[in-house]
Amino acid sequence: MLFYLIGGWIFTFKFSLEDAVKELRPQLCYQCMKCSSGCTAAKVVNNYRPHEIVALVKAGYSDELINSDVIWACSVCLKCVEYCPQRVSPFEVVMALRNESIARGRVPPKSFVEMAKSVLKVGHIQEPMYIMSKDFEEVSRMELGLPEMPKPKDFEKFKQHVLLVGFEKLKEVIRV
């Protein structure tokens, strides 16, 4: 739940899974399998089936998904968004499930944690790296003559806001 103060009014945004998913109307899905037929991730990740995820949400088995890692397999290619004949958009359903899983204090796969940590540390998903060139030379931005990577100026404020818009729960879990 989030509070915003706008012109003296307090607005409350509740992000419960039910609300998020209702908007996406998974109940309209008639299981045409188009999403699973074209899904990038489904072809390489064995148990990732967008139509099945929508069906499970529709049938009320969201908890199963929230507690499993499979929802983090989506490749964000947006093909299901584009071609779903009922505008259900399995991608958005998966994102809502991911959000809910974070809200319930579950830890996402390690790489996501790393990225989130980095956002809270430098404002980006990772810090500038040393890159190995073809000649086995390690180069950095500076050595290539590139200007320094910009960071949020008022970092404390930025971090505070990031936590406010949804990283709060994650912070407790990953203990930054």
Binding site: I71, M95, N99, V119, H124, I125, P152, F158, V165, L170
Partner: peptide, 14 residues
């Protein structure tokens, strides 16, 4: 500047 948030969509909608 800051991260645009694409990979973080799953962590927070907002």
């Amino acid at each position: 500047m800051n991260c645009c948030g694409v990979p973080m969509k799953g962590i927070s909608k907002f």
